[in-house]
Amino acid sequence: MSYLCFWFLQDFLQVFLAGNILVPEYFLLFLLYRSLSTEESFIFFLWIAFAGGLLWDIRWTGLIGLTSGIYVSGLIMARWVWSFIPDTGKTGFMLSFFIWFPIFFVSLARLVVWGMGRDLLFQAFMIQQACIIPVLVIFAVFHSRKVASDNA
């Protein structure tokens, strides 16, 4: 249900902003957060990412399979690299970096597809990143608290 909420949050933002800025990838952000910070089945996250991306493509991009492929790839890469990090290094800051990095690449991919003037692209990209960072900070704080309570 929470995944659906984040997907709709992203969708509503897309409707509200009507393509004036790059909409923040809140759905992928939440998926990454959940997949990196919980012990739930990663396969479940993979297919949620696939379904969410596919729905997004059908609704918005028209390039069916593009977003789903990017989401799944981002998720796999983040999870794969994350698995090499020792448990003591999986801090809130590190988690937020591992969430932000795939999103950064997804945003770059979107910029390539979007096709606007260079100045507008940069502006849209910066606004998107500015919208993502506060949520990242919140997730980092949640994760740090969770780690602290687990260690207590």
């Binding site: 396969i43 993979l46 789903s68």
Partner: peptide, 27 residues
């Protein structure tokens, strides 16, 4: 290995959709 297989399957389906979605009858 299961995760890798699922992941690669999802990516493969995405790529196939990307390539063939325009030719799908009910797209």
């Amino acid at each position: 290995e299961k995760q890798w297989i699922h992941g690669l399957c999802a990516i493969l389906i995405s790529l196939l959709l990307l390539v063939f979605s325009s030719q799908l009858k009910y797209g």
